[in-house]
Design a protein around this nucleic acid. Structure first.
Lengths: 237, 237
DNA sequence: CGAAGGATTGATTAGTCTCAACGCAAGTGG
DNA sequence: CCACTTGCGTTGAGACTAATCAATCCTTCG
């Protein structure tokens, strides 16, 4: 069927952008895999692990929970990203790993992973590049939490998730994307209450910044939303 | 002079802990160096660089400033840490690098640094371990900002800076340490106002958690402060 | 001595949280 | 097919945290 009847089909959209991330993905898809349903806990807080997880499908969250019940989503990993990237075996973890959407992840022992890396410089580069991107994102995220109020935070989250999806996937450049987070999860990522998050999202709708329904986010004006969020897209193609 | 006349001298205190970090330090101290006074700007926001900085002496802050003037200190690098650790040359930066205390840093071109790394696996490991620690700290920091109120934030900052100093330096285990940050800088790190920071620090003094004067921090009960801060010392010896 | 940066205080306001309900839609079991 | 449950979104009222604006004090330093 390939090349068979649609000569005008833009092939570029198939080859777009998918650079190093895919090396990790390719590697991962030949490893031992496991799937989880949305909201399953992959690794509980305080539970240690001697394995590295590589996300193959879906979104995976790294979370902490306090004694008082409040939860924070510290980061969201998407396909090609790593969880528990620390290569020291048996690092004690003070955070949990949970599936946000249905996910498939590769599970590789840290020991094996180190061995593989030492034989594959390309893969090593991809791994470290990913780590560096993660670090960079995390830095920006701290700044954002420190500097921003509710609207800016939520706008920022939306910008980031939108851009990461668009950067990763080959697809038409629409102004909308899947947005599987519940308002409660948005709140947990942004350090807000669910109630206040709800009111703030309504405010954003009222201002015409976004539309959000049925787990689908539509960004009316990306430039405008990015301005509100003080968001700068680092990895723009 | 080694082993020459003080058999009872505790050598351990000299060799304590200073593990991989020092490889970077050793390397750095043979490179081109520069010193800055406290508060000097090493690299302005938006100014790119094709160099890596390794901190040799003093504290270096990574900061962002918004159009409205509010500033956030995203991270603090101490001797042995890196700034601008991204190895891609000419990455555009959206943050500034500034001296918190008087500092000395090594300046290495990213290109050269990559070359050196490829020949020195030990150094490479030290480098990546440092990056991983930084990432881990940054994750916890996001969680902290998202979950905590003013007292917890400031307590957390103090715990972290105290522990990092104690972990790095070989020295007597006192309950006090240098604390060169002004209240304004504490505020910028914690995402609070200077005024509110002041009131909160007073509250902490009133509660007997800390003493703070003349850039010297004394922690009355580390356990208690860590409890307030929800801080867990990862790299405890 | 004046100037400047830092710490402190007071009064007021804006932003978020808390608690408490309610509505709606999808799923489940009888 | 209906009653019940559950998860998610929505709304309202009141309390409280932290921001804002504006001074004042203190120390250091030129």
């Amino acid at each position: 069927m390939l090349f068979s009847g649609h000569p005008q089909t833009p092939l570029r959209s198939q080859t777009k952008a998918k650079s190093q991330g895919d090396l990790l993905l390719d590697f991962a898809s030949h490893q031992r895999m496991r799937s989880y349903r949305a909201r399953d806990v992959v690794l509980a807080q305080s539970e240690g692990t001697s394995h590295v997880f590589i996300v193959i499908r879906g979104w995976v969250g790294k979370t902490v929970q306090r004694a008082n019940g409040r939860t924070q989503i510290m980061s969201i990993a998407m396909p090609g990203d790593l969880c528990c990237g620390e290569l020291r075996t048996q690092q004690h973890m003070d955070h949990a790993i949970a599936a946000i959407t249905p996910i498939t992840i590769a599970i590789v022992s840290k020991f094996d992973f180190r061995t593989v890396l030492s034989h594959r410089p390309q893969l090593t580069r991809a791994f470290w590049k990913n780590q560096q991107q993660t670090l960079s994102r995390q830095l920006s995220w701290s700044a954002m939490l420190g500097l921003s109020g509710a609207i800016e935070r939520i706008a920022y989250l939306m910008c980031e998730l939108y851009c990461r999806q668009k950067n990763a996937a080959a697809g038409p450049d629409t102004d909308s994307c899947p947005f599987p987070l519940t308002q409660t999860q948005v709140a947990q990522a942004c350090g807000l209450t669910q109630v206040h998050t709800n009111r703030t999202i309504q405010e954003m709708r009222r201002r015409g910044l976004i539309e959000l329904a049925n787990r689908q986010l539509t960004i009316t004006s990306l430039a405008q939303l990015m301005a509100v969020a003080n968001f700068h897209n680092r990895s723009a193609a």
